[in-house]
Design a protein around this nucleic acid. Structure first.
Lengths: 149, 149
DNA sequence: GTATATGCAAAGGTTTTGCACAGCC
DNA sequence: GGCTGTGCAAAACCTTTGCATATAC
């Protein structure tokens, strides 16, 4: 299902957008990124390849790509992060003690969504905000009285 | 269980902090606020009472109050919000279509937490990030083909 | 050729920080 | 009186915006 850069570009063209070298580079960089990227990091990566590219172009392109459903963003402690839509099923878990990130298995995520929906009516999108908490290792450390970080 | 301003001040004194008029005003304003406040709104409220108070004092005091466990913060689309610890049990639901806010019933919140904890090991704090989704009304509107906002 | 995208620069906004002075205890 | 907290100003960020120019189609 995962599109490559050329396919994304073709789809954008079909929507009436123009394909510029800047946009090609930004698309490629996002598709190449595993997981998620902040706009600022993405801007830095792009500027390594094409130093003249302005940060505002990166921000504008991200908005464009989100409206074209190529990417999506979610929020965590440090702000917003972008990822390709195909990787959007992840529920992001963040340990507030050690900072480790993890993902919720899809089956469990579905179960949570259905439970909220059935019991409360609200249909949650658990992928849009991260979930803070304690990872297994840090729970054990806390139980053992380890002061930790 | 809810402390009043004087009790909070006494507790801070016990921790070795000094109580200034600014801090008293900030504490009172937070305790008076129902629900949550952004730092910027809090700063504006304080400045109505005491025009000379600088925003940096508000930010510094919020950090202090959080380390003393008087307040806590959570994140949503627009940034961070602070609330008193006693009101911290809320899981914040936000409709991404109409913007309406709601809270998850405590029993359901507990159930979700236990489910994640049992199945995955991770012990989530569902109060630290809001949960985005569709409220009941907007689900019906979408089902009815209403273009909506 | 024309509409769109870009670069640039500047603005906008929030939050942080350094420092001298004021004021709490 | 000593140490902590405050105001002020400025800086540091990130992100957005207006406008003239470049360029994709």
């Amino acid at each position: 299902v995962a599109e490559n850069g050329a396919q994304v570009a073709a789809r954008l063209r079909g929507l009436g957008y123009r394909i510029t070298p800047q946009r090609e580079a930004i698309i490629e960089e996002i598709l190449a990124a595993e997981g998620h990227v902040t706009p600022r990091l993405l801007a830095r990566k792009i500027q390594k390849r094409m130093p003249a590219v302005n940060a505002s172009t990166v921000y504008r392109t991200l908005q464009l790509l989100e409206s074209a459903e190529v990417v999506r963003h979610f929020h965590h402690e440090a702000g917003a992060e972008y990822h390709r839509v195909e990787e959007g099923k992840h529920v992001h878990l963040l340990c507030y003690r050690c900072g480790a990130g993890d993902d919720l298995p899809a089956a469990l995520a579905d179960q949570l969504r259905d439970l909220v929906s059935r019991c409360h009516g609200f249909l949650p999108d658990l992928t849009h905000f991260a979930i803070s908490g304690l990872c297994v290792a840090c729970q054990q450390a806390e139980a053992a009285g380890d002061p930790g970080g």
